[in-house]
Design a protein around this nucleic acid. Structure first.
Ligand SMILES: [Zn+2]
Ligand SMILES: [Zn+2]
Ligand SMILES: [Zn+2]
Ligand SMILES: [Zn+2]
Lengths: 127, 127
DNA sequence: GTCATTTTGACAATCGTTTTCGTTTTCGGC
DNA sequence: GCCGAAAACGAAAACGATTGTCAAAATGAC
């Protein structure tokens, strides 16, 4: 694995929440790296292809990435305020999704499930 | 409600699946309308703001819209092949999402849940 | 060191979407 | 029916995220 990809992976590891390519580019430049934006995009593409990082889309359509501790199937509880994310599992949801697909004759069923909220810290900050 | 917005809403009603702004623009022009792309975007913005249509993002980040029969909270089972969508409910998922948020001290909890698969027709078409 | 291969990054191009802004249409008052 | 204000339109420009291009730089045999 190349040095640049390592750098991007590490920048992601240092973040607790989901970050966009541009966020990571800014982070890396801020800490002195001479990396280019194109390379950040390429690294993220490779990392998500290999399943090393999770990707999801914001409401605005921007792709955001996260290096998750769990490498098995899971979902996220994401703070709208600070972006912090918690990995969560939902066996009931997995079964429900499968059942829903089957009931309507769909095959090769997958799903996207994300939970959003305001974390305790962010709630406190507002009050 | 203006005539243009009606036209967009109707175009959506005639589709069984999720459609992008550009799709709808093409549909309308194809049937002779002189509507502009800007107006399609504006109509969709208004329709989704008022909750008359559902929006979601494709993996590529494109916004797609659907005029759903149900006006209460629900999710979708979407065919990857033809885009056809079925409205589905999942009380268990609703409770799970709430519980997950609460367990981690998150407030103002919402969620996005979509199920994807290949519908029976599309499965048959391939074989 | 030399040559071939891979990686990189500045820049241009693409694509969906939004903004701008002048024109057209709608509509209430006359 | 006619007039002016307000709302709706649409073409074109602007935008922002992402991808493509291509020449320079790093890497790795030999
Ligand atoms: Zn927070
Ligand atoms: Zn799942
Ligand atoms: Zn289908
Ligand atoms: Zn729900």
């Amino acid at each position: 694995m190349s040095t640049r990809r390592e750098a991007v992976k590490q920048a992601l590891n240092e973040a607790s929440g989901f970050r966009s390519a541009q966020d990571l580019y800014a982070d890396l430049r801020a800490e002195g790296s001479k990396i280019g934006l194109t390379t950040v995009y390429r690294a993220l593409q490779a990392l998500s292809d290999s399943g090393e990082v999770d990707v999801l889309r914001t409401d605005e359509g921007e792709a955001v990435y996260r290096a998750c501790a769990s490498d098995s199937h899971h979902h996220h509880l994401v703070c709208r305020g600070c972006g912090r994310a918690v990995e969560v599992e939902g066996p009931a949801v997995e079964k429900w999704a499968e059942a829903v697909g089957a009931k309507h004759g769909f095959t090769d069923v997958t799903h996207t499930v994300e939970v959003f909220g305001t974390c305790a810290d962010c709630s406190a900050r507002v009050n």
